[in-house]
Computed example of a mutant assay.
Amino acid sequence: MSTAAREPAGMAVDEGIRHLLLLMPRVVGRAKKMRVPEELQSFSLAPRHLSLLANLVFEGPMTVNDLAARLEVAPTTVSLMVGDLSRQGVLERRSDEVDRRRTIVGIAAAHEKSVNAWLGSSARAWRKVLAPLTPEQRRLFVDTFRAYEDQLAAED
């Protein structure tokens, strides 16, 4: 029997850290290379705008409250971002057909194709790697990634 057959299927903590220390800079580097489409470069989009736009690409148009819940920020914060991007023509606001008191936010038709091409590749990549996992494995991955981000924030 080979030595590999007797070793546990998992990975030691230090080995995992070594792999991630090599992998994370590559992932960040690839994310930074996702060039903003030329027609959007004049809008001075910040990382918070990218998260908002990525959620609209992935989920489609939604209310400010739904966006706030997904972005884990206050609705007033999302309202400010939506107002800014609406004034610039990146987003459109419309009344909800079911409840006219609610406002639905979506990517403006003039920019929908370029925003989808730009940010959609990330969602497609996540779908491809997460789909084969069990729901429990996906939860573990997301929880671990969130805990990593929380730990980095705690050390700032």
Rank of each mutant, 00 (worst) to 15 (best):
T76K: 04
M1Q: 04
L50F: 05
R70A: 05
V142L: 08
E72Y: 07
V64Q: 10
S86K: 12
E92G: 00
A123W: 09
D84Q: 15
R146Q: 07
E97T: 08
T134S: 15
N55G: 09
V98Y: 09
V57N: 06
A12T: 10
T103H: 07
H111P: 00
V27M: 06
T3L: 12
V129W: 05
D156C: 10
L67V: 11
A68N: 09
A108H: 07
Q41I: 03
G10H: 07
D84L: 11
K113T: 07
A9W: 11
E97W: 00
T103L: 11
V105Q: 03
A5C: 10
T3I: 08
E155T: 07
A74F: 07
A69M: 14
E155P: 00
F58V: 08
R30I: 02
D156N: 12
T77S: 03
D150A: 14
R70Q: 05
M34H: 05
F43D: 12
G120S: 02
S42Y: 03
D99N: 08
E15A: 15
Q151L: 15
R124E: 13
N116V: 04
R102C: 01
G106L: 05
D14A: 11
M81V: 08
I104K: 04
F43Q: 14
L67K: 04
G16T: 06
G120Y: 00
P132I: 01
E38D: 13
Q151W: 15
P61E: 11
R94H: 01
P132L: 02
M62N: 04
S44Q: 09
L52Y: 02
A5H: 12
A74S: 13
R138H: 01
A31Q: 09
K113E: 10
T76E: 04
R138A: 01
A12Q: 14
